[in-house]
Design a binder for these strands. Structure first.
Lengths: 153, 153
DNA sequence: TTGATTATAGTCAGGAATGGTCAAATTTGC
DNA sequence: GCAAATTTGACCATTCCTGACTATAATCAA
């Protein structure tokens, strides 16, 4: 069993025993598993990413931490499904379709939908080279979607 | 929990229990938390800045004090003011401060705030060259803010 | 009145304590 | 053997905290 799996299992246990929220000290955890601190980042990015249904927040400096939250709920599935449906790129038309569907299904409020549409508009992204816009659009959209799931953190 | 967080929490309580105005003695407070007096300035400048929605006044010398007041405005004013405060570029930290203030003041819903924070995160903008991120961030933020204004007409 | 003393607060540079990123090296699983 | 996953280390970024030095206000003594 690779160290990364052990670390992931440890974090899973933390999540299970704390109703879905785990708070870590990167250095401490690295020492516990005798690995490089950066391996903690590796484990988090490969196993606790937004696509896996987790929110990760952190803070540097004295008293710093890494907090991992598991998102639950029911509009969740709709949103998670959307996150997983968005590939590397996202066109304006497809984005609009996703958003209006989520709004229709009640997974997003009117305000939320309007904000998302604004953030993804070509107008907001006008200073990005057109051939890169769909890439950025996809990244921003996923990030926004997952944030909705964690809104009660 | 870092001392700075404790101090910030203490000031928050003061504000809450005094309808938005807290008056401190820097030296006394520093002694209460066993820290350097200048740390009080640090806490104030990082957590009670104008961008966070506070006004700070002070006076030196005998009987000196630091007064922190929370400012209140209508949601529409707050949003328009924010739009006007954002220049060509916007750092992640400043963006976060703006958003948390708008949330606190009730100009944004929790969902809206979460979505905006996600859209503006370095994580979402990862594929943009770092030196261009603040530019894009400003554009997206303004676009989103304006969408909120027109959404609840 | 005015100069000295005392009592506050402000600024800034820097050290310490975190976490983040990336690419190269290594190991693992077909 | 090869591709993917893991692991590490070098370097970067952020946040916290302090202390030396500075600035300002009130008070008191002459």
């Amino acid at each position: 069993m690779a160290t990364s799996d052990l670390i992931a299992g440890f974090i899973q246990e933390l999540l299970d025993s704390s109703s879905g929220i785990a708070e870590l000290r990167r250095g401490i955890l690295a020492e516990k598993f005798s690995c490089a601190p950066s391996q903690i980042n590796y484990v988090i990015s490969t196993r606790f990413s937004p696509e896996h249904g987790y929110i990760v927040e952190s803070r540097r400096g004295g008293g710093g931490y890494i907090r991992i939250s598991r998102v639950r709920n029911t509009p969740r599935q709709l949103i998670m499904h959307t996150v997983n449906s968005v590939g590397e790129r996202l066109s304006p038309r497809t984005a609009a379709a996703f958003i209006s569907n989520l709004l229709y299904e009640g997974a997003l409020s009117g305000e939320g939908a309007a904000i998302m549409a604004a953030a993804l508009s070509d107008n907001a992204l006008r200073s990005i080279a057109p051939e890169h816009r769909d890439l950025i659009r996809a990244a921003i959209f996923k990030q926004m979607l997952v944030s909705v799931l964690s809104e009660n953190n």
